[in-house]
Design a protein around this nucleic acid. Sequence first.
DNA 1: TCTGGGGTCCTAGGACCC
DNA 2: TCTGGGGTCCTAGGACCC
Length: 432
Amino acid sequence: MSSIRSRPEPPRFALVDCNNFYVSCERVFQPHLEGLPVVVLSNNDGCVVARSNEVKRLGLPMGAPAFKWQAFLERHGVRVFSSNYALYADMSDRVMSVLASLAPEIEIYSHDEAFLLFQGSWRRDLKEYAGRIRSEVGRRTGIPVSIGLARTKTLAKLANKLAKTVPGFQGVLDLEGRPDTDRLLSALPVKDVWGIGPRYAALLERHGIRSVLALREADEQWIKKRLTVVGLQTVLELRGIPCIGLEASPPPAKSLRRSRSFGRPVRDLEELREALTVHVHSAAQRLRANQQVAGCLHVFLQTNRFKPEPQYSAQRSTALTQATNGTQPLLKTALGLLKRIYKPGYAYTKTGVILSDLQPEASRQLSLWEAEPPKREGPKGLMQVMDRINTAYGKGTLQYASAGTERAWEMRRERLSGAFTTSWADIAGVKP
DNA sequence: TCTGGGGTCCTAGGACCC
DNA sequence: TCTGGGGTCCTAGGACCC
């Protein structure tokens, strides 16, 4: 009402990102790795999915196949670890709960990233506060993080990138009100923008849009035509107009996939059945934990596309007559589909299941022949018992017979570190 | 011997309907 | 010569994210 009053400051987003997350998790429990080159491999010890700064400086790219870089890793004395998801998931929970205790609003964006939103009275001295968050996370979890602050999520992502890579910023950067913002953005390539992947980056570069600053100034109509409304949203966010809000609670999943590459080629239908059984069981268990049911089930099967040998891949899906989250009906359907797409004579590398058309269990569509939802007895009670046992005693304690017991197809994890925080056998000790 | 796994959203085009 | 117009739904493919 009064024009004398200063304009309210806009809300500010922070992006908190754990530095080289998986590597940092390994270092928390093996402090001697500090300062040494370290990588963590994907499932099956396949690709490099996390690199320490030392390794990044050596020029090893993200996603590099480990076997192709074997000599490089040895030459530089790189410490190599299989991925240890039990450890990383637990460390992620710890980092997120520290963040949640320090910020008014939080969106857990991935296992190593969270957006925070500061409004109203929180706006003062945000940069200093972010520094406190950073040191508090470090003190309570041992994980180093970087924090970027800005008016929009897309800008906060960029601020984070700068905070992490420009030495002077020391892990925290607030992009708001900086006179040198344009200079900083003109030095960043367009591929660094959240939402600009390799294809769009190449397209933009062909049209002379090379820096983040150039993208910010690009023509809206052209962007909408070539990068869809999503790209337009990105450009508006770069201009400081918030288009993407904070999602405090994740929306319910729409689909769910379980698959894994085999540790070695598999030719036999029986072995494929075993692997698929494990995946269906795991997917169904997740479904039950989410209190959802699936209306549609897809099964797929593929050979190794990198190998010069006969290739075959197939997928088949079916709408379930009755949406369910029971392992038995899903398994029966899945194994039936697998049998129909399987062809002998190929060396398969992967099979898996996708559950889609997910609905909340409570509001499940009843089938025409079903007068009322099934009681909690029968298969459902059995499922609950199985889930509880598997949660308490470890994944796979109780399994379906078709999952097999030989498991020759299971993945390789030859360089696994201990489950330092989730298994009593491996728990970290303190020397007196 | 060896190349991860799990998601979301948008668009174009075809089928179908009135 | 000349072959409507507009709406909805579904799917495949392409893009992106971590």
